[in-house]
Design a protein around this nucleic acid. Structure first.
Lengths: 215, 215, 215, 215
DNA sequence: TATGAATGAGATTTCATTCAT
DNA sequence: GATGAATGAAATCTCATTCAT
């Protein structure tokens, strides 16, 4: 159910995916996340998807094709909000304080990640091994996203809300805190009782104090 | 050379490893880190190690055995300093300020990680897929290490040097900042020019401000 | 030719065996009988069957699976006539004299064995080593077949045609004589000139005198 | 203990077997009987024998050598009593009646078999697959033993104690009854309660009636 | 003599991919 | 489009045998 929606959202039906294709993608996502790309066999995916082995290769020339057809759009969606052409303008006007920007951003992306945890998992697990993914990642994150954020950081630095450090360093520190929370919460210790509301607030506070300008 | 030292250090040759065994382990470490455990074939390891494929299986019953025989001690070494029985006592007395403790700890573990980057890589890549490793990780990190750190945090909280948050949250925030740096520096963007001295100092400052008690 | 018939008969093509599957089974039967299960390699079977080695494992998960898929139905067919629900009734009415029953039985099973000698060979060679087969053997022979025979023997004992010994003993003596002939004739000294007609008659005589009631 | 005696008896110390050699042979006998020659690995034998793998090959050039060095003397011992040069003379004089001869023979060989059951097992399991063993078997049994027995049978036929059938046939019938008992008793259903005394007597009776001359 | 590490040929098994139906 | 039997290359693993110590 929610699985279908996920796929529908990720691969905007525009692409015109068959019912079978969706089943295949769904099965692949589950298996890749659980056992890793290399340890998942196509026959396994076929079985879980309820299709014949050959059907997979009718839609995806190779197994790696299947992986890429999942990972690439996932990565795109993940960073989409940061790539919107005029993010900077919009944001700057919407959020007087960096703190509010931060809060909004975390909440937005966290919702997304919670919904797409498996995809996120696949990404961080496979990027190190798939040159194509690594390239995409570098191109998108390293250039596009970071580039936007640099502007955002500089903006708030100019407003005197952020300490006068190299923007790269600020980004690193902020990103570490956020991803640290996401990974701990969702991947390392998902079985613990997390009060998102509270933890996010504390994380934002931590960041804000950490990067507050010297008085 | 430095490879041999690494292995010697990790598998205290007390264990009495054959020359060939060392070659095998060395080759396995390299390949696992580079291509991942599942995508590394034993024939590849054998070739790189300059031994017959059968030799691998004489020393390690299965391929997974080989992985575990590398990962388990690596994990142990990685967290060793935090498990030293009286870490807390020692530390508390040695470091008047949490900041100094932090500084020392980061430098110590960073040196270790820089030397053993490949092993660290293997660990974070394979722990999600190897139940045995996951179990060890949980047992050691989650219980032993966290337990020690809880005491340390509480100690400095009582001294009024750390904000009065749940110690778990403090640990998370501190750990995120540190690992965020290590991963960014070593795994994500190793090709960039990092000034460790400076970055560490800034990270420590960030943390200290972030967890400073409210005045 | 006669090979195909054999297989068709044994694995009533109801089972829907592929042409390749039949070839595999045929090749396996030949090789197992000739060299024994453990000494027959799957690559050998594949070559003899004219299929790729992978094809074997598409149909039979393991090599042992292949053995069992041959041996189990063979055993079933071998003892089928003795398990027909109302064997006893039928036989008792059809054969006034035990001698006639014996004669009929030997001829019937001997024809079958001559046709399926290789299968019989595999059975007696592998049953001692394959717990699954041993279990089936005990369950079918020891319980089902022996049970029927007990009734038959008792029946003819009551008619005064057989000496008043424990039926188990009678069965053992009769079975020894029959299998002794079959094994000597077919397995030990197949190169000799056997006059089945005569030998069977003599064997039946031997048995009949051996178990004749005391006058 | 009794194992050592067995080996001592079988390989008359004359051969001068080392302690290690005995252990090897003992281990091999056990494993061959239990799992079959082909499915027993030399490393397994070495472990069970408590010696190094290399030690086996110091004493026996190949694995098959080891098998033959066990099987050949076992076969020899098994049929020894029937090959004693003047068996016929001796026997004829010792036993007025064929029945007594039979009784004595069964008892003698049965004791031996009970003591050497594992060896017997190995023989009947491996003879079909080992040309060398098959040759020895044919040579010894088919020629030597049968030859002797032919004379014995003929002798008692001339005395009018045995029906006037082809001696080969008589041998087959007698042998079937005896081996049928041994195999059923020791190999097929060793878990049942057998009263040897009684069963042997009945078997002898069965044979004697079966081959009694027509009145 | 005994050892056991090392070998390499070969055994079993897996699996991505193709293709006839 | 979908199927699933077939493939064959490669992966993991086994094992008899050798040889330096």
């Amino acid at each position: 159910m929610s699985d279908k929606e996920l796929i529908d959202e990720l691969f905007n039906n525009a692409d015109g995916l068959t019912e079978k294709q969706k089943q295949i993608i769904q099965a692949a996502i589950e298996s890749f996340a659980e056992k890793g790309y290399a340890s998942t066999s196509t026959s396994e995916i076929a079985k879980k998807a309820g299709v014949a082995e050959g059907t997979i290769f009718r839609h995806y020339k190779t197994k790696k094709d299947l992986l890429l057809s999942i990972a690439a759009p996932a990565m795109a969606k993940l960073i989409a909000p940061f790539v919107i052409k005029d993010l900077d303008k919009v944001l700057n006007q919407d959020f007087e304080r960096f703190e509010d920007f931060l809060q909004a951003m975390i909440e937005n992306r966290m919702k997304f990640l919670n919904k797409n945890l498996t995809l996120f998992r696949i990404l961080i697990q496979e990027i190190p091994f798939q040159p194509e993914l690594k390239a995409q990642f570098k191109e998108h994150i390293a250039s596009k996203v970071v580039e936007r954020f640099l502007k955002v950081i500089t903006h708030y630095q100019e407003k005197g809300q952020i300490i006068d450090l190299p923007p790269y360093t600020v980004i690193r520190l902020v990103a570490s805190s956020i991803f640290g929370y996401l990974i701990g919460r969702n991947l390392l210790f998902p079985e613990l009782d997390w009060d998102d509301q509270v933890e996010i607030e504390k994380t934002v506070n931590f960041i804000m104090h950490g990067i507050a300008p010297k008085k």
